[in-house]
């Protein structure tokens, strides 16, 4: 055998990028399973169709950019982006919504900037925001969860909703974030008594979906796929701000800390979106700051903005700020007393 001539190190650790991506996909499973339980098979159809579209679009982009197709597809990043975006979409979304979302995520947010690793913005969140701004009606049509009276659609109906949307009669219901946002006269206690979709803490079904994503996130944390800094920063700042403005649950209250933690996409965002390393700050300290600022923005947009949920906007805004945060959070190198100027 001809002897290899390579430079050190010769040994390599076990983890590789493909496995990282596969682990992220695996970690979404509990959340997706609970979503399916509460909202029916809509999210599953979203993910299956969305993944196929994303892989096809990634292939086209790689071919046009003359990049190795199979080796790059093997990193699974397109499927991860597709899954994260499809989890964020309302179940029973029409096919064209998914196609436009994937185009924005895979082409606009990722390949226009040079592919995986070069995208300054989180691709899934770019796709989500493009859709939310362009198609607000479709993007806010959430199906009612199990236990609020309506019957859950079957898998066949879910397929029809996706591929023949004109023949599908969607049943929708305001989300818990909407209900609390629109509330003006009732104390939170009275509001919760009146609205079955508010569930126990933060929305029927929603709260359990959030907890399932939390479980997946903690598993990834244990596998050291990311560090605790960004999620803890985000959850801490949301908790602090919501506690500050809780106002004892009066009619002016913006919701309890528990409501904001378990409601909307807080936990999904904290563990699956802001932990995307490509578009976040790079150092641990930087990621703590990055997460905390996202948490603050989420809360501000939720209570003062026009859109009911805010994770996507908050993440994109902080993607802009990540290089700035990096600049001021460079760690102290061994043997240096102060951080070097950049």
């Amino acid at each position: 055998m001809a002897l290899l001539r390579v430079t050190s190190p010769h040994a390599h650790g076990a983890q590789d990028t493909t496995q990282v991506m596969q682990s992220v996909l695996l970690a979404t499973l509990p959340g997706v399973a609970v979503m399916t339980w509460f909202f029916g098979p809509g999210t599953l159809v979203n993910i299956l169709f969305g993944s196929m579209v994303a892989v096809a679009m990634e292939t086209v982009a790689l071919a046009l950019r003359r990049r190795p197709i199979l080796r790059t597809l093997d990193d699974h990043s397109a499927v991860v982006t597709a899954s994260l975006l499809c989890i964020s979409l309302p179940p029973y979304s029409p096919w064209w919504l998914i196609v436009i979302g994937m185009g924005s995520a895979i082409w606009l947010a990722k390949h226009f900037y040079g592919g995986l690793g070069y995208n300054p913005f989180n691709p899934a969140m770019v796709g989500y925001v493009v859709l939310l701004i362009s198609f607000p009606v479709q993007m806010t049509s959430w199906a009612p969860p199990r236990g609020t009276g309506a019957e859950l659609p079957s898998f066949l109906e879910a397929l029809r909703a996706c591929f023949a949307p004109q023949t599908y009669d969607a049943v929708t219901m305001a989300t818990a974030l909407d209900v609390v946002k629109q509330n003006s006269g009732l104390t939170l206690e009275a509001l919760w008594r009146e609205s079955p979709q508010l569930g126990r803490w933060a929305g029927a079904g929603w709260e359990w979906v959030s907890l399932a994503f939390l479980a997946g996130g903690l598993w990834m944390l244990k596998k050291r796929l990311f560090t605790w800094h960004a999620p803890v920063g985000m959850l801490l700042s949301i908790t602090l701000l919501s506690a500050l403005f809780y106002d004892e649950g009066s009619s002016a209250s913006k919701g309890s800390p528990l409501f904001h933690l378990l409601g909307g996409a807080t936990l999904f965002g904290a563990f699956f979106i802001i932990t995307d390393p490509v578009s976040s700050a790079v150092s641990n300290r930087g990621r703590l700051v990055y997460g905390a600022l996202i948490g603050a923005l989420v809360y501000i947009i939720r209570v003062a903005g026009n859109y009911p949920d805010a994770v996507a906007f908050a993440v994109l805004i902080m993607n802009f700020a990540a290089p700035f945060i990096d600049h001021y959070t460079q760690p102290r190198t061994y043997g240096h007393r102060v951080r070097p100027p950049t």
Binding site: V20, D75, G117, F226, V278, N284, P331
Partner: peptide
């Protein structure tokens, strides 16, 4: 063959000189 850097930060955690 190397894949794209996804800026995961594992390298910064491993660096004994606290570099990035």
């Amino acid at each position: 063959p190397p894949q794209a850097c996804i800026r995961c930060g594992l390298c910064a955690e491993a660096c004994p000189a606290s570099l990035l």
